[in-house]
Simulated scan of single mutants.
Amino acid sequence: MEQFAIGGDLPVRRLGFGAMHLPTESGPARENAIAVARRAVELGVTLIDTAHLYGGGANEELLAEALYPYPEDVVVTTKVGVVRTGDDWKYDARPESLRVQVDEGLRRLRVERIELLQLHRIDPETPLADQLGALRDLRDEGKIGRVGLSEVTAGELARAREIVDIASVQNRYSLLDRSYEAVLDACEAAGIAFLPWRPVLGAASSATVALAAVASELGVTTAQVGLAWLLARSPVILPIPGTAKLSHLEENVAAAEVKLTAEQLKRLGS
């Protein structure tokens, strides 16, 4: 499986795993979730994505239970900037809040440094310089290794890069949802990792005629074609498909071996 160096110095395999869908409640569902996380690593996945938002940290704790002590080449990236208030969630990227969230993430993941920490959403109530300045300070203190963003526009990315080095962007993007083309192009030009979330849902549920035809020709699923298309679309793309099923996990990882021809890529709209 191909690799990409996030931030220029953190090598990971290009097809990662999104842990958002893993159940965290006790019982058989949790045991299965742990098995799925462990299987992802067994299959060669080295980039695993989670967030403070996922279960209020319960997803981070699940990954630590499943994988700690982490294999040397495995990177668990998490996100901060969205917190629970009562029964609801809100953006909160005030510097003091980000510090608390990062410290909680370090404790839950059982690490001394989070190698890639992404701002889950830009907080509209807090100056961008304050949000990213806090993450820059945490990086300089050694608590995080690299700073990333999520769901940003090309303009927001440009402004952020004036404040701190940006190693990654995590936006919604897939074969059938290309609304962030401009952000992907900016990332490719700068060598910034682009982690598309929801990379296969559209491909699996809304198959176009061309997509279905290519999948049939290759003897694979439309979801696998969607992932293969992403890997071919740009060398900076690191898809992070998520699932709670072992069969889907193995199917997703196998997509790294699916090779699309130039003619097939053209038909898919590349």
Score class of each variant (00 low, 15 high):
Ile6Met: 09
Phe17Ala: 01
Ala19Asp: 01
Met20Gln: 08
Thr24Pro: 04
Ala29Lys: 13
Glu31Ala: 14
Glu42Gly: 09
Glu42Pro: 11
Leu47Gly: 05
Leu47Glu: 06
His52Asp: 12
Ala58Glu: 12
Asn59Met: 07
Glu61Ser: 15
Leu62Thr: 00
Lys79Leu: 08
Val83Ser: 13
Arg84Val: 14
Trp89Val: 12
Tyr91Glu: 14
Ala93Tyr: 11
Glu96Pro: 04
Ser97Asp: 11
Ser97Pro: 06
Val100Thr: 14
Glu104Ser: 12
Leu106Arg: 05
Leu117Gln: 09
Asp130Thr: 08
Asp137Thr: 11
Lys143Met: 08
Leu149Phe: 04
Ser150Ala: 12
Val152Phe: 06
Leu157Phe: 08
Leu157Lys: 05
Val164Leu: 08
Ile166Val: 15
Ser168Ala: 13
Ser168Glu: 07
Gln170Tyr: 01
Asn171Gly: 02
Arg178Met: 03
Arg178Pro: 03
Ala182Met: 07
Leu184Gly: 00
Leu195Asp: 10
Ser206Phe: 14
Thr208Phe: 01
Thr208Leu: 04
Leu211Val: 06
Val214Leu: 02
Ala215Arg: 02
Leu218Gly: 02
Thr221Met: 03
Gln224Cys: 13
Gly226Glu: 09
Leu230Arg: 00
Leu231Glu: 10
Leu231Lys: 09
Ser234Phe: 03
Pro235Asp: 15
Pro241Arg: 08
Thr243Cys: 03
His248Asp: 14
Glu250Ala: 07
Ala256Val: 13
Val258Ala: 05
Lys259Val: 15
Glu263Ser: 10
Gln264Val: 03
Leu268Lys: 02
